[in-house]
């Protein structure tokens, strides 16, 4: 028993166990997704996050300890963002031809995301710091956090809202766009990237490469657009 306890404290303090568990939870999430017949609400990220949250809670492990191992995965977000240039490059011809619809979708999506989120939260009684934290939630995390700081929001709250927005977008996109009878992969991808950043983009890549490329483009464009739109929206509700 003491040996086991000593072994556990040795393992749980190092990065190896948590890195392995992160990959294992993701593999389990992916297996659930496939077993469900690729149902959008069985989201791989969501399943993996729930599994890991339960493990951390059950073993009384601090997030900081977990992140010692998980940081190796987290770090790859940067190179992955740079990698999005490749599908963009592959679809450059399509993108050039679709410049007008892309601009229209970006404006409509970005303004709707910020304005409707703030308006609904305001109508439900949210005020002050929390209200400003909602406005940039459709932008990719580092951008959203930077914007929240500038417009008087709480960065931690914004980070939570950004991740939850991403998961929401990844879950609702397929049934929603099917119900709206939108079959154009460019429109489907771009709208998901604009509304739900990288997590939505990851979901789009699971479905179709053109949708993935346009989602990556939507995410990048909305990172810029939200920096202008979110402060305007918050000013309206002050």
């Amino acid at each position: 028993m003491t040996d086991l306890t000593a072994f556990w404290s040795y393992l749980s303090e190092g990065p190896l166990l948590w890195l392995a568990l992160t990959l294992l939870a993701y593999a389990a999430g992916d297996a659930c997704f496939r077993a469900s017949g690729r149902k959008p609400y069985v989201n791989t990220v969501l399943v993996a996050v729930v599994i890991l949250a339960v493990i951390l809670w059950a073993t009384g492990t601090a997030y900081g300890t977990y992140f010692e191992g998980a940081q190796f995965v987290h770090f790859l977000l940067g190179p992955a963002t740079v990698s999005l240039a490749l599908p963009l490059f592959d679809n450059l011809g399509q993108l050039r031809r679709a410049a007008l619809p892309v601009a229209a979708a970006l404006l409509a999506g970005s303004a709707t995301a910020a304005a409707s989120a703030v308006a609904i939260a305001w109508a439900l009684g949210v005020r002050g710091e929390a209200l400003a934290s909602v406005a940039p939630k459709s932008a990719t995390a580092p951008v959203a956090i930077g914007i929240a700081e500038r417009i008087g929001g709480a960065p931690t709250l914004t980070a939570v809202l950004v991740i939850l927005t991403g998961i929401t977008g990844a879950v609702v996109a397929t049934p929603l766009l099917n119900a709206l009878r939108i079959r154009d992969w460019r429109a489907r991808g771009l709208s998901v990237g604009v509304a739900s950043h990288g997590i939505g983009t990851a979901r789009a890549f699971q479905i179709n490469p053109t949708a993935g490329a346009f989602a990556g483009l939507g995410m990048a464009l909305n990172a810029v657009a939200t920096a202008f739109i979110a402060p305007l929206v918050v000013a309206l509700f002050r």
Binding site: S116, G125, L180, D184, A187, S196
Partner: peptide
């Protein structure tokens, strides 16, 4: 309140962006 705002706005944003794209295309 925040969760309702988040879910509804995300649905609206996806619908608005996709519809704008298809219309302008």
């Amino acid at each position: 309140a925040l969760l309702v705002a988040l879910v509804v706005s995300t649905v609206l944003a996806i619908a608005a962006a996709a519809a704008a794209f298809v219309l302008v295309a």
